[in-house]
Design a protein around this nucleic acid. Sequence first.
DNA 1: AAAAGTTTTGCAAACGTTTGCATTTGATAT
DNA 2: ATATCAAATGCAAACGTTTGCAAAACTTTT
Lengths: 334, 334
Amino acid sequence: MKRQKASNLADLSALAGVSISTVSRALADNPLVAVATRDKIKQLAREHDFQINVAARNFRLQRTGAVGVILPLGHETEQHLTDPFFMSLIASLADALADRGYDLLLSRVIPSNDQWLKAFVESGKVDGVIIVGQSDQIDVIETVSASYAPLIVWGASIPGYSQLTVGSDNFEGGRLAAQHLLLQGRKKLTFVGNPAVPEFAARFAGFNAAIAQAGVPQGAVLPSHVTAEAAYATVRTYLKEDGAPDGIVAASDVIALNALRAIADHGLRVPEDVAVVGYDDVFIAEQTTPPLTTIRQNFVLGAQMMVDLLFRRIAGEEAASISLQPTLVLRASA
Amino acid sequence: MKRQKASNLADLSALAGVSISTVSRALADNPLVAVATRDKIKQLAREHDFQINVAARNFRLQRTGAVGVILPLGHETEQHLTDPFFMSLIASLADALADRGYDLLLSRVIPSNDQWLKAFVESGKVDGVIIVGQSDQIDVIETVSASYAPLIVWGASIPGYSQLTVGSDNFEGGRLAAQHLLLQGRKKLTFVGNPAVPEFAARFAGFNAAIAQAGVPQGAVLPSHVTAEAAYATVRTYLKEDGAPDGIVAASDVIALNALRAIADHGLRVPEDVAVVGYDDVFIAEQTTPPLTTIRQNFVLGAQMMVDLLFRRIAGEEAASISLQPTLVLRASA
DNA sequence: AAAAGTTTTGCAAACGTTTGCATTTGATAT
DNA sequence: ATATCAAATGCAAACGTTTGCAAAACTTTT
């Protein structure tokens, strides 16, 4: 009876015999209310297990307490979802946001027109937006970001665009991968991945730069789609028709995984005949046969950086894009 | 000038020369307002690209427009996040919720005390909760679900518990996997997976049932942890010390993947020497070497069922737990 | 004992909607 | 012209908070 639940400040104020304002201030530990009163009210709140109405509070404060995380699925409708890298990034984002008392509002978008982002931003559902992967929506993002500050993008920082990005240095990553193979004396390299995707384009550029510097013949490119089946088939056909290279740089671990399988099915050995370097270092990379040498992206750090930047923007401060250094993880495949 | 943004109903009502109520009703297509007025207001809203304040609306309607999706990380702090199965389930949930105009609020919880779910539910941030995987929190969930209807759990329906669950029939899945191996004439089977996890316990039970029915010697169990490294090491040691079985049923594809690697490193062939059946049919299952024969869980359907059930509960209707039939997907590993 | 100052509390407005009810407007019947 | 009825619109309250400002309750100083 005495312990029935208090569901709002009014209930609690009646119980305590004080005004609603006092209760509100007491719970916020406002020194304006006497310590004795404060303690009494807090005690009462505990006894009647009072939980403040977050929606009402956020409404009054004109904020939402949530950050939208959007996965635009432009190029590859299927890819992003299942890619462990994105999952890990999202998990880390959830943690980083939770640390600041914010919630993560997950939204998948299959862009049908160029209004989707504008509509989302203006709906007032979130205090800020994090976009994971530019996909083919870089111009839409650019337009909105011109007038909406709290918007951070995971992806490539592209000259001429002012959107605030966090991403690993894809050029450097591609360079590292190719360099590693070249230092082993490999001479005929192939890049597998679709350069229409901005991130992949930069990786391919780095790959080319390393080759140019080493003075070996120019590398080939297999513009494979990201989906599993496509990558396998592309590599398989390539090996059959064009002969095997002695080194492959894959634009992602998922592609690399399929390259491994295609090479094995073609009757060649990894790394003896063909060395393979992946990209991302997703959790399955160390569980492939053989375990994958790959370029690691630090998603925990990346997520923290994005959230940092976002809150700086929400606070109205300036902030600049961040590029993280990728590292080479040595395993058995190269 | 004429095109400046209208940010609330008041702005719009001033522009239209009508009251706020009329604007509200017009935008909701309420037949109470004259068609001409309705059209005029809607036109105006478009011109000044008006976006209704969702937070205010939800507040007034005493709802939040969001459903919380919680991943409790009890047994295996690392596992859930990166498991492609969960990712796929979450993606499907996001879609199913979006279809109903709801948002998905993602929350990872590492249970520190038994109040976490109660606090979340009472915070008023969501209209309903979907819990993905019972982990070791089944009792906490049971307690809360007794007094909070809109709560659905992905996981095992366990006798004696009344929480509303959607899950695949894990017993049947385990039985199917073992049966498949037995029908090939395999006689010495091993189950790899920790039976302390409720889902895995049911799979193990099904595994045992198939063996009992076939009348072959009882199978062994390797209570491996779900993490990749642990599974590899466990299987590797087992092969060395106890000799190889001719068939392995893994509690998940991730475990199976590592079993494949351990068997290969031990110098045996899959499926000739040891056949391996996985569980889940995550997207990498068809990309392993050899591709994995596995028990498929239909997560798209599962997600839809969960959302259906949830909204039925939100509407105050009755609903019963659902068990989905798993199917055997034949590939090369068994 | 009154004045002045300080600490503590309460009143009421505001955030942007939706909606029950009252009111106005216009049409039709007397 | 007046009464009746239907259709269209507006008024005002409510959702549960936070907070500027006014008021009340004490304390200290004169």
